[in-house]
Every structure is written in C-alpha cells, then in structure tokens.
Design a protein around this nucleic acid. Sequence first.
DNA 1: CTGTACCACGAAAACGGTTTCGTAAATAAG
DNA 2: CTTATTTACGAAACCGTTTTCGTGGTACAG
Lengths: 334, 334
Amino acid sequence: MGVTIKQIAADLNLAVSTVSKALRDSYEISPETKARVFEYASRLNYVPNLYASSLKRRRSGNIAVVLPEVADSFFSSAIDGIEEVAQARGYHVMVYLTHEDVGREQSIVQAFRNGRVDGVLMSVVANEATRDHLVELDSRDMPLVFFDRVCEGIRSAQVVTDDFESGRKATQHLIDRGSKRLAFLSLAGDLAIIRQRQEGYLQALRDNGLDEQTNPVVCCTHTEADNLPLIRHLLQGKHRPDGIVGSVEKVATQTYTVCHELNLSIPAQVRVVGFSHLQIAGLLNPSLTTITQPAFEMGKAAATLLFRSLEKQVDVRGEKITISSVLVARQSTA
Amino acid sequence: MGVTIKQIAADLNLAVSTVSKALRDSYEISPETKARVFEYASRLNYVPNLYASSLKRRRSGNIAVVLPEVADSFFSSAIDGIEEVAQARGYHVMVYLTHEDVGREQSIVQAFRNGRVDGVLMSVVANEATRDHLVELDSRDMPLVFFDRVCEGIRSAQVVTDDFESGRKATQHLIDRGSKRLAFLSLAGDLAIIRQRQEGYLQALRDNGLDEQTNPVVCCTHTEADNLPLIRHLLQGKHRPDGIVGSVEKVATQTYTVCHELNLSIPAQVRVVGFSHLQIAGLLNPSLTTITQPAFEMGKAAATLLFRSLEKQVDVRGEKITISSVLVARQSTA
DNA sequence: CTGTACCACGAAAACGGTTTCGTAAATAAG
DNA sequence: CTTATTTACGAAACCGTTTTCGTGGTACAG
C-alpha cells in the first residue's frame, strides 16, 4: 500500500541502505544524494513504517499512563501535564484505567511485556496487595515512575506531594477555626498516600491533645453507594463531628451531598476540608476549602523523570520528587 | 533479550513455522505438538514481539482518541467510556490533546499515517478551518468516528447529541421560569454543535416572540482571561439579561464566577443553565441546571462503532448516532 | 610509486514473527 | 494394488527498516 524505502531505492537506482541512511541524515551520504532522496521521498509522500523500525530499534515511542479513574480532577489534570511533555518530545501516550481493581491493573501491566510501551507512569490501585506484577515489570527493566499513589514495596522513581504534612495542616486548620470534634474520611485499600495523610491527621490530634476515640478515622470505599450511608451515619450520630477531613476528592463532595440532604449547615455545623483539584471548588455551596495538589505539575514532573530515564539511559530509581500541596481556605471552614 | 519463537523451535527440534502455527492454534498442527509448544512457551514465559507481528499483519491494536482538552468533564467521561469498550476488546487507547489548536490537531493526525493506530475517535477543534488533514486521513481509509464535535465537511460516522433541540429546550426552560431577557454564551471557532445549540436558542426566541437584538448571542473564547471581562461586561450593562444559556461547561462556570464577584443572585437576578456533565452540578452555589450529555454512553457508542468498522471491515461512514441530552432542572433556574 | 586515509555507496544480515508452498508419510478411495 | 486425499510438518520468502561490513575510488603523505 504505502510507498516503501525499497521502492524509492529502485526508482532512484540506489541501494536501500543508501536511502535509509540518507533519510536519517547519515554522514556517509553525500549532500547531493541526500537531496535527491529527500526530494523524491517527500514527493511520493513517503512515511516510514513504524513497525519495521520499531522492530529493529527496539523502541516504540509510546509511554503508558496507568491510573484508577479519570473522573477525579486530579488525574485528568495529571494526564494533561503528561501529555504536554510527551507531545513536546514526540512520544505518544497510552491511557489505561484500572477502576481501582487490582486484577485489571495486573492484566494491564502484563500486557506491557511485549514492548508496546517504552516506559510506564502509574498511580497504583493498592500498596501491598499482590504487587508481583510490578516487581516483574521492574525486573524486566521497564522504566517506571509512580506519581501520587506510589507502591512502597518497589524501589522506583516517585513524584508525590507532602501528604503527611498536608494531612496535618488540614486538620490543624479545622482546629484553628474552632472545630472541637473531628473525623477523617479515609479510603479502603491500603494506599500509602492515604495512610500518610491519615498519620498527619493523627499527629495534629496529638498536637492538640485530642484523642482518637472521639475523633475517629472513618474508612470509606471507592463507591458512592457505600459512602453516602456511612457518612450519613457519621453525621447523624449522637456525637456528630463538627470538622471533617476528606482524604480524596470524592469523599469531600459526598460529604457535601449528605450535608445538603440532612440540612446540615457548612461551616456553621460542620466544617469541611478536602484533598481536591477541582477548579470550581470556589463555586461550591459553600465554597470548599481544599488541599490542592499541583496535579498538572506532578504529571509534567513524572513524565520528565521518565524521559530522562528513557533517553539518557540513566537509572532514576530512588529519585523522589516531592511537591508541596497548598491549603486554600474558603467558606467551608470559615 | 526476550525469548523468541526461534529459540523455542530450536529447543523443541521444530521449525519456527511449526511453533508459530502451534501458538496460533492452527489446524495444521497435531494436538500433541501444540501441547508441547504451549507448555514449553509458558514455562519460558514467552511473549510474542508486538512489532514483528504488527509488521506482518498490518495492524497495531491501538486506537487514537483526539480531543481538545481533558479538563472538561464531558471529555473525561467520554474517555472513560471509550477505554472501557477498548479494554474489553483487547485494544489500547492513545490519547491526544489538541488544546483547541488546529495546528496541533494537524500534526497529531498526520502522525497517524505510519500505522501507529488502526482507527481514530475524535472531537474536532473546528469545523471549517483547514480540514484537509481530516480529508487525507479519510482518503487513506483510516476508520474515523467523530463524537460530539463533528466536522461537517467529512462524510464519516458520528455520535452526537440532539444539540438543536437541547439549545431550544434550555432556552424555553428559562422563559418558562420567567426570564424576560436572555443571552446565549457561544464559543468562538465555528463548531457545528455550538452553531446548532445556538440555532435552538434562536428558535426558542422566535417561538416566544423575542428578538435577537435584545437577546444577544455573545461569543466567548476558550480562555478564561478573555471570557470573564466579556461576561462581566454583559452582566454590568444597562440591559442586563436575566437568563443565560451557557453553550459549554466552562462558560457556565465562568458565569458563576462573575455573578459571585458582582454579587448577582442566581436565580433571583440571573438564571443560568449550562451544557455540562459535572457530577457535582448539584453541589454548586446555587446548584446548576444542566443540559447533561450522556458522555460515557457517547464514548462507548463511538468506540463500538469504530470497532465494528475495524473488525467487520464494514463501512460505517454515513452512520450517525444521536443520543438525547437531558435537562436537569436545579436551583439556578428556580 | 607504494601505503594509508577517507569518501560515498552497496550487499547482506539482521529484527521476530507470519504465511505460502512443498512434501513425506499415512490413510482412504476405486 | 494403484491413485487420490488428508495429515503434520519444514523450508523459505516476506513484512520494511536498520546496521554492519565491505569495496572500489580518489586524495594525500612518505
């Protein structure tokens, strides 16, 4: 179908190797011949077969982005940053969604064994639960960078935020604004970043002489249908908390939903702060105080790290980039 | 590095062709030999080289999704739907962002000439402006399905919503709720879907004996920095509209921003309805009445259409799937 | 006038599969 | 007992590049 190097060679009375070298601008070829080849190739609209060259050069020019979902504004912004860097470097981005399912993550990662991608960026589903597929990926020398949701068991490059400090800061903020009884909405699944945010929460409790019993950690899931009753129960209980830290975006918005439903006033009755990257947090009712992660920058940083590993053949494992989140105070914690 | 078919053949005293056929479960190979090959291959953890087979079979197993941005919740949901269908069929999804830039769209599409993807799903940047790259793509027999933002000049499969009717319905809704003076926030760039939503708006005006002069169409851009002053001007003018139709998500949220800034009460002073896919529209201040497009379903439908074209070798050009949007009335138009 | 150093190019071997075609042996048909 | 047919496999071409290794030819130093 398409015009090949072979045909160009024949038409120009050259060897295929000569044409190939000319097109790659090799020093072995004279300027005149190069000119002839270039001119003819572009006249024929020649475009090299990707698979032939990938087969030979052992690289695809693709990178994979593996993440739990795309509905969360953090992840969509991260994709944005990744894609920008990739496009600038001539790489192509493949997106895979795990939907918080370890099984899917495994089969996705296993598919990378055939060379479809040169490197992988990922935000894992879980920390501990069968990380064998990641170990295997690493042992095959596939460049791998974790962003946000890292897997602690693997010694690999990471781009994260200061989760412990952010958790502490968010909690301290609630206390400073006058909340007396707190709750931390955690997330099932043994994620390192959640655990650290939670540790920060507990640290803040200790710093202020509060105990864990009356200021609980409530473990939410990934599905709204589970969480709404859970949060409803929390907010309808005898000892209703008056300050809530949402460890991820969705539990914060779900808290809003329940408060609206129960006619609980934010912030008068319940203050809310959430980890979130929503651009429209300021437009919520009331505007939501957020711990905002620099998602776009994290995506860029992760991709840049990966490309350094890919192109310079340098081992970036062990490199860890930490970018600070910022607390944006709004009405929900006034 | 990896184990090849050649090695398996040597170790098993078979010809490479025999091994290849065995692995592909060819009828030419005896059950016993197949068993031997399978067993040995899996013991060696054999995984076929993607590029070798793609070179021969002339297909990549990848599809491309080309869209303006990922920040808009419509597009991220669409990706979700597309990825789901693709994963189920064993295809891989490459994501490309145009950032509303025709130039980028062109270079992205041109890169598809080398066979990296077997088919393309796209939401175009513009309708008219140099659609040559799309024509060329089509002329190379690359399966192509537009979703949402179609390019009218190309006869190609499409998945869209009933934009005219949605625009009309949104406008009529405002009128029914009591708005007397309307405005339609359009979008620069000659997009077919925007034009149709706008036509629906104009139709509703006519239906109710309203004229275009006092109920203007305001042309917004893709950048917030342009739009805020524009909307501010509109809402500060002598003849302030009391009903606004936002043709895309961002102009609706930007209207919110300006109203908050100017202390204009929604819906008392200004009613707002917007095309949007935000799950949290109900949590905005006040909750936003939306024309909600079935983004996830549209993504699935588009991908399904594409795969029909890819796998059954059937020409789907000319097929047009229209899925209805739904108007969800909330506080912003009470 | 040799020997060494480029220069510009060609022949051919990869890369790792897939596919076509051929063929020896075994079986079935006449 | 021939002749057709099926069965199970192998040899080799091929997909379209890249890359290694020559090889004539010219230029230049000794």
